[in-house]
């Protein structure tokens, strides 16, 4: 592109660039800058510039100022990755059949089902997650049913476990897996599946060799849409994990609220972002490698 052409297209690009600058670049720069400052006593940040927040992620400072390796935050980080990964896998396992079921209906039913999938978004996530507390707690719906039917006499404790968090995460993010997969499957020509059957492929082979390769793009999109927000989630771990099983999102949330350590919260979110970016780049590289003829 020549210099003059660039000058001429700039006004047209300006709104988009402005949006990116205000809503993406600026907050990231601010968070990045905060992570290198010192915590104010009542929240906020102050000088001097320091890398202390990043050091704290891995080390504890002893009384004599020597650094002792501390894995508390790494454990939280690892738990977040494990829970987000499990959420993603479960979402694929549940979302793919759901999306396939939807894609096989007629047009009117499909539209209705898409609407049904989006209905949960009409209610605040906090309230929906709290509903799971009501369902799962010792006096909750599930235990009432179990005791009522005589399956158990004492309530079973479901809440405040990794499993409860996982349930909440899958519940929160499943639609983000179903919708992109559905979008790719809806465009899939049903004749392709017939052609596979015609060419001696049973149900499984038709899925394995024709449906799955063509649905993969939707699964990849869904994976990003589920994994990334699940990694940073704090509502499900707070409410369903009872704040005892911290995830990285809850940790960051805490630093900006009760712990009043903004630089550390900012540093943790920077580390999270760096991890996500690296993961995405690796995934994109691998996909590009597969697609190349």
């Amino acid at each position: 592109m020549s210099g003059t052409a660039r000058v001429r297209t700039l006004p047209l690009l300006a709104p988009a660039l402005g949006v990116i600058l205000v809503f993406m670049v600026a907050p990231m720069l601010i968070a990045g800058a905060y992570s290198f400052l010192t915590a104010g006593a009542y929240g906020g940040v102050r000088l001097p510039v320091t890398g202390e927040a990043y050091v704290r992620f891995l080390f504890d400072r002893d009384l004599d100022d020597s650094l002792i390796f501390d894995d508390t935050y790494l454990v939280i980080f690892g738990r977040s990755i494990a829970l987000a990964a499990a959420t993603t896998v479960l979402s694929v396992l549940i979302g793919l059949p759901v999306a396939w079921f939807m894609a096989c209906r007629d047009k009117a039913t499909r539209d209705l089902l898409v609407l049904a999938i989006t209905i949960p978004f009409w209610t605040n996530l906090l309230i929906r997650t709290y509903c799971w507390v009501l369902i799962l707690r010792d006096q909750g719906l599930v235990n009432a049913a179990l005791i009522g039917t005589g399956v158990t006499s004492e309530p079973i404790t479901f809440l405040y476990s990794n499993e409860a968090i996982l349930l909440g995460l899958v519940y929160s993010f499943l639609p983000f897996m179903v919708l992109p997969i559905y979008a790719t499957l809806e465009r899939l020509d049903p004749r392709l599946v017939e052609a596979a059957h015609d060419l001696y492929a049973g149900r499984w082979a038709a899925f394995r060799y024709v449906v799955w390769p063509l649905a993969k793009a939707g699964v990849a999109a869904g994976t990003i849409l589920v994994f990334v927000p699940a990694l940073g989630a704090f509502l499900a771990p707070d409410l369903l994990g009872g704040g005892r099983k911290l995830m990285i999102g809850s940790l960051i949330h805490l630093q900006f609220t009760s712990s009043r350590n903004w630089p550390f919260g900012a540093a943790a979110s920077m580390i999270l972002m760096a991890f996500v970016l690296v993961a995405l780049v690796i995934a994109a590289r691998r996909r590009a490698g597969q697609v190349a003829p």
């Binding site: 020509d189 004749r191 392709l192 052609a195």
Partner: peptide, 20 residues
């Protein structure tokens, strides 16, 4: 007999070639 067990093959009107 399901289609995949019939020694019959089809040329589809839209060809239905596997794009991938």
């Amino acid at each position: 007999l399901p289609p995949h067990r019939r020694p019959v093959n089809t040329v589809f009107q839209s060809y239905a070639l596997f794009p991938h």
